[in-house]
Design a protein around this nucleic acid. Sequence first.
DNA 1: GTGAAAGCGCTAACAT
DNA 2: ATGTTAGCGCTTTCAC
Lengths: 334, 334
Amino acid sequence: MSINTSKAASISEVAAHAGVSIATVSRVLNSTKPVNADTRERVETAVAALGYRTNALARSLTRGESKLLLLLVPDFANPFYSEIIKGVESVIRKAGYSLVLGGAPDTLSRDSQALDTLYNRLADGVISLAHYHDLQPLLREMPGLPWVSCSEFIPDSDVPHASIDHQQAAVDAVQYLINRGHERIALLSADENYLWARQRHLGYEVAMQRAGIAIDPQLVRIARGTDYVFGMEAAGALLAQKNAPTALFAVSDTLAIGAIKAFRRAGLRVPEDIAVVGFDNVPLSQVFEPALTTIAQPMHELGAAAAQLLLERLAGGTPTSRTLQHTLVVRESA
Amino acid sequence: MSINTSKAASISEVAAHAGVSIATVSRVLNSTKPVNADTRERVETAVAALGYRTNALARSLTRGESKLLLLLVPDFANPFYSEIIKGVESVIRKAGYSLVLGGAPDTLSRDSQALDTLYNRLADGVISLAHYHDLQPLLREMPGLPWVSCSEFIPDSDVPHASIDHQQAAVDAVQYLINRGHERIALLSADENYLWARQRHLGYEVAMQRAGIAIDPQLVRIARGTDYVFGMEAAGALLAQKNAPTALFAVSDTLAIGAIKAFRRAGLRVPEDIAVVGFDNVPLSQVFEPALTTIAQPMHELGAAAAQLLLERLAGGTPTSRTLQHTLVVRESA
DNA sequence: GTGAAAGCGCTAACAT
DNA sequence: ATGTTAGCGCTTTCAC
């Protein structure tokens, strides 16, 4: 029960109250040097009486570190990112850090308030989930900042990242389809400014090639967005083909679900008439009917690994990127 | 293109480089007082040359405000919160604030690092999405902090909040069912330590009473969690009744979806055999089949309103809580 | 219009 | 073991 109703007490008030110097107060607060038992007690009493709490700003200023990490999230509403955030949190918290949120893609321009507020050494480091082409310009603006990328990564840069092997994951997904006897396998990709989309697309091509299946360009579609509506749209176009596919690999679950909805609306059964495999294993994919066969990324671990990377970097190390394992989760849709 | 590869330049270096005093630099940086055109230019050149950026920590310390707001989120993985966060962001950003994330419920104990790191005047204020019983102890620890609650609220406190009228929303949902001719309406509630669960439960009772329908205690279930599995579980129990319900009101969409899965697995058709209405209008509810009839909360607006409240509070005002409008979204499940 | 200097609340080196 | 003091990098009177 603190006494002060008005202004926050400062360290000097505590010192006065306890009849010691501010240095001593600082020492008991940080247990940075031995302090006599009774002195310590007097200080602690004063702290309690005044409801004193260290001013984090002042501490950070003198220490030269804020214990704040900036997290760049393209879209909070994306459950995919949420799990990563949890992973990040779990490790940085143990190290005494907190997260500052940096926002939407459009706030990522140089003169944005977000950056002005944040890059000014408020944060000790950055974990970015943003897409690399949004970042590249920024990155060269702030050579000093410890930077780490999660899930995405930045080609030709020394920014360490934690991610899965998107291409290999796509190979696995398509290979699964091939193993099940499919040959006319369609690809539903997303805006290929996204590295992951490009890489998953590549994986599709590799798998097809390896199996000696020629790729029908008609069967390759780029959705206009990642929302499931765009999945429906693109799937519709696919159905309009003379020679319809028997399977579909979508580079994201939302797209896959949109496609399934479109297929069913067209009277097709999934997976009997057309098999579908997605990517991401979003929460929805498990609940949706038919439950989605998809590639699961270890999202929590991804976040944790990225955080670990940053922590090592902060400790003066030069960690190298980590590639984590994906899994093919077989459910009902394929 | 900045020159410094090593350490960040400080204001005094800029001053030296421009041949002016640090006061002048500060003036052009903040345009707080008139400065001669050529002096200004010299300073600006120096700033550019040195790649100088204001140290946010130092600025905050002198100004006595950090422009940082603490956001308490019980669970990042919950899409419901994500939308709120976006709403919050959109308004605070305009006011020059950034968000610091405060974490999971279990980190909310007094001695947690999260709080130690943050409450120490690092943040200028707090927006909480956490449940009130998690907060009450904290709240009395820090009488000084401008605090605002979103979606949840704290009974018998002077903490302003932005939320919908949960009880009335539940009344609307159940009334809708009644209007469609249902009488044996079941309630699927959640842990009633949650205020919203209690209030929605209450709404159910009010609606039933008003319609003169006696409530069958057998038809009222409390799920063991909010995950959809618990919805399935509880729905199973409901089906085991001698006198099965013809409709169900679930206090959350995830619960509703779980229930629907269970119903269908038992050979029931939704909504023909049993109608279901949910609550929250999570993204999934639109995609799920059958699409969910549910109560939509204006999540973005909720976040924005809460942020607005906090801003007013920060400006010295004493804003009063705001109740926003919910909507019944009629889709396929009822 | 510009500079000098006093803090903001801390931590850490240096004394004692 | 404890106190004095010099910063940390800025903003803001107060002089000139």
